[in-house]
Nucleic acid binder design. Structure first.
Lengths: 250, 250
DNA sequence: CACGATTTTATGTATAGACATATAGATACG
DNA sequence: CGTATCTATATGTCTATACATAAAATCGTG
């Protein structure tokens, strides 16, 4: 046990070395959205001027960012901010469309309800922080080969994600849209099982009392709540699969 | 979408550079168990002799292994193989004892059944590969503050994990034992919901027909099946929580 | 214009050397 | 015997340089 250092705990506040400062600086710009996905970050040559160090030093910082999948480096072209990546295979359940496509089934999507409103007490409680601004509330249904696959009930903080105001959630599922447009830094999943009530049973076309899998997910960027979603899957018929692979690739 | 390279797919079989060869070589020894957790890997000085290169080159290989949490580097002491780490927070559900302790509740464990046998057809199907050797079958119950928390039904491949023969699963839950003694490279989780039948209801002290969360997990080392486990949690009362955090630390 | 060849350029890998820093182990001391 | 100090040493960071490599950009030619 002594070897497992349990990183999250107390950082000894080690003296920030130059390459770490560079890495943290760039990381910050990416995570705050200052450098959005696709943005080309300065060339190593420019960075060594900016930070007054050798190319090897900025290269080390960039290499670590690349290993962490925050940037993608391409010879001759430069280094680019990656779009928000799945930090773990589990999160693929975040994109139901991709999940269904991966199963080789045809994806269907149906927007049930989408409204914009000033956050009420329940919205604020659900999103976490003391938001008083506007939110978007979305209800929709995903289907595979025409059969109900999951129903989704989502809340998006419009102040944290103003771009969402312009998105067309009738054309694109909110999960996909968010995943491809909004970088996030933390997510929390809560998984549980319930039995279907009348409403859920009707929406999913299953029997009342049938088991359902529930996934509640909250997503933040730098501790600021972005969205909260509840997904309801028919329980026995469907299994969520997550794969993990150790080690390194390449 | 174009930026997301979907790593798992086709590796362009890039020319293995020296530092990558070193990294892969060391990684292999760790994952095969040749260098077990706690083992001190050769000093940089020895490695540069072994591979005939400069210290910067071996250092780069070791740095990447450290970033991937496969080794831990300590000044003056050397670099050490880390014990199997959680590759993702989700996997903390792999260690129910740790999960319950994290909740601040007292952990209880009860071995219901533990038997060794030659793998039958059902065992082989469950573990995957065409195993014909011996397996250990375990049934046990975990409780928190004296209340049933989950029941576990596990199969361990004794040929792949011969050390398990000497383990005392009456004293230590098999999940904890495996996590701390056996390195793995791949795991697959399958999550679903069912309603409790008579047997499950009795074991978990819930009503027949109550929702239950089911987690099936399979674990491999280098494509060789190690163990298969099914966990049954009471559904509404309990929630599995997983957290993800982007970026890098330090 | 289309298309292949050439050039340019940013990253990728590797080197030798230098100094910093933490710390395990040895040593000295009370 | 316990503790403070010293020392040796393995890792941590950084530099300046060199050449390799992939791919974008340009050029040349039919």
């Amino acid at each position: 046990m002594s070897l497992a250092t349990d990183r999250g705990k107390l950082q000894p506040a080690d003296k920030p070395t130059l390459y770490k400062q560079i890495r943290i600086d760039i990381e910050r710009r990416i995570l705050t959205g200052e450098w959005p996905p696709g943005h080309r970050i300065p060339f190593e040559h420019e960075l060594m001027l900016r930070y007054g160090c050798s190319r090897m030093t900025v290269s080390k910082a960039l290499s670590e960012l690349a290993q962490a999948d925050l940037i993608e480096r391409r010879r001759k072209a430069g280094s680019f901010v990656r779009r928000p990546t799945f930090l773990s295979a589990v999160l693929k359940i975040a994109d139901i469309r991709a999940e269904i496509n991966a199963l080789g089934r045809s994806y269907g999507y149906e927007l049930i309800q989408c409204s914009r409103r000033t956050a009420n007490a329940a919205d604020r409680a659900r999103l976490g922080a003391g938001k008083t601004g506007k939110v978007i509330a979305i209800a929709c249904r995903h289907s595979a080969d025409g059969v109900p696959f999951a129903i989704e009930d989502r809340l998006i903080d419009l102040d944290a994600v103003p771009e969402a105001a312009a998105a067309d959630f009738a054309a694109e599922p909110p999960g996909s849209w968010l995943l491809h447009h909004v970088p996030w830094t933390e997510a929390e999943h809560s998984i549980s099982a319930i039995v279907a009530d009348e409403q859920a049973a009707a929406a999913l076309d299953i029997a009342i009392g049938a088991p359902c899998l529930v996934i509640d997910r909250h997503t933040w960027r730098s501790a600021r709540p972005l969205t909260a979603v509840r997904l309801l899957y028919p329980g026995e018929s469907h299994k969520l699969i997550a794969r993990f692979k150790g080690g390194l690739e390449g």
